[in-house]
Design a protein around this nucleic acid. Structure first.
Lengths: 246, 246
DNA sequence: CAATTTTCATTTGTCAGACATTTAAAAGTC
DNA sequence: GACTTTTAAATGTCTGACAAATGAAAATTG
């Protein structure tokens, strides 16, 4: 762990890097306690504040957790799936919103990834996953649902579909793609008719999964992808026209 | 932006949260300058060190960047694709290494996702992508290549395949899946014979993409997935046997 | 002796004030 | 006008202090 005080890079960034490397390389094991802030500041020959700033950086990436008190300190954190999901979702959401990603691009990516799960989901789907999907489809058919609630239920449906594949790495990867679409989906107002179509797709997908029919599931997802994109395009076009007339 | 000094949550975490929310909600726009540390410490009624720790947290997530000097300060950072790739890769790598994810699970996820790209890659592949893939396949055939170099080239090949789909969101999502596999792949020693098979697959995939044959590409990727997993299983089994004999 | 309470040392969280360094704009100089 | 110097503002770092949490050891009590 070498630190260069004359580097143009902040000391706290260098220290964070050194500790991160130690974690990634396995030098520091999960749940192992790091030296106290005072010890670290002595080791690296910097002030305690600088060490603290480095530790905050690592904490923000869920690489460490800290605990106060006598036996407290900073511990190497086991990155859990929920934590990784969360990071994945915020990153993907920001990436999309800050880079003017088009609806079509995001939609294409999302459904391509979902279709990658379809064969495994069809093979391994449990009764639990099917029940969740049917419950969400039922919720979506309720009248008086706000667009936000409809989209949230849509996300829940698709997450169940992905989770049904029984591969946690896939679920983690897909979490970002599915959830990050929600802000874009929320831009659309769904008519009763379009909601009806989507719910129909969802019911058919649940049926296909129950029948363990991978090809049918894939075809339905492809059709749903096409319909979603067409719907969005027509909504955007209508909005554009209203603007020019106005 | 409300801060509660009596909350069990650290003040710096609360402040980071408040600023992050302002960024995500669009209250703070890209490249907009945040108030100076002194101003923030007055606004939130905390010391400058606490504000600084909050800013370091945000910096670690690439949400802000800081600049020294008269016109310096903290600015809302536009999350670029390379930055997002990097975060995605470290998170995915740590998730796999810290949670004892099996080779089979990671391999299945990776190839399922890659196959999701295949139809688009076949349709849109450019001469550039094909050239990259052929160059990497050629490199992989060179004798005397270390296992690490072989794996690195393998990653480069597959990233070109993914990038050929021409969907940046897909590329971003797949970066994690492909790169995070590398440490696992590095655990395998590739015999000349198995390298030959893999290079053969790569050449065939490049051919199929050039011919814009999506079905053939998909079939080859599926076969490569199967071969990779079998290879890993036999390597692990051999190692296990050697251990018990020893 | 066992259970409870108290004390205490350790560690992180926060604060205040100082100085160093960087940077661009303003002021001065030729 | 072009160049140099000064200056002000901002982040980066350091020092020293106190608050708060927390578990372990010590003291107390029944």
């Amino acid at each position: 762990m070498k630190i260069d005080p004359d580097s143009p890079v902040d000391l706290s960034a260098q220290i964070a890097r050194a500790i991160r490397d130690a974690i990634v390389s396995g030098d520091l094991r999960v749940d192992e306690r790091l030296p106290s802030e005072a010890e670290l500041s002595e080791q690296f020959n910097v002030s305690r504040s600088t060490v603290r700033e480095a530790l905050k950086r690592l904490g923000a990436q869920s690489l460490i957790r800290t605990q106060r008190g006598a036996t407290g300190g900073a511990f190497v954190n086991r990155l859990t799936y929920p934590e990784a999901y969360g990071q994945q979702i915020t990153t993907a959401t920001l990436l999309i919103s800050m880079n003017a990603v088009s609806f079509s691009t995001a939609c294409e990516a999302r459904y391509a990834l979902e279709r990658a799960c379809a064969p495994m989901s069809a093979e391994r789907r449990s009764a639990d996953h099917l029940a969740t999907m049917r419950a969400e489809a039922h919720r979506q058919a309720q009248p008086g649902l706000t667009d936000e609630a409809f989209c949230a239920s849509d996300v829940a449906f698709h997450r169940a579909l992905v989770d049904a594949a029984g591969n946690p790495i896939l679920s983690y990867q897909l979490a970002g793609a599915v959830e990050a679409m929600q802000p874009l989906m929320n831009m659309i107002t769904f008519s009763a008719r379009s909601r009806g179509r989507i719910v129909g797709f969802h019911a058919d997908i649940a049926d296909a999964l129950e029948a363990q029919d991978a090809d049918e599931t894939d075809a339905l997802l492809a059709a749903l992808a096409r319909y979603t994109d067409e719907l969005a395009q027509s909504v955007f076009a209508a909005r554009e026209q209203a603007k020019t007339q106005h």
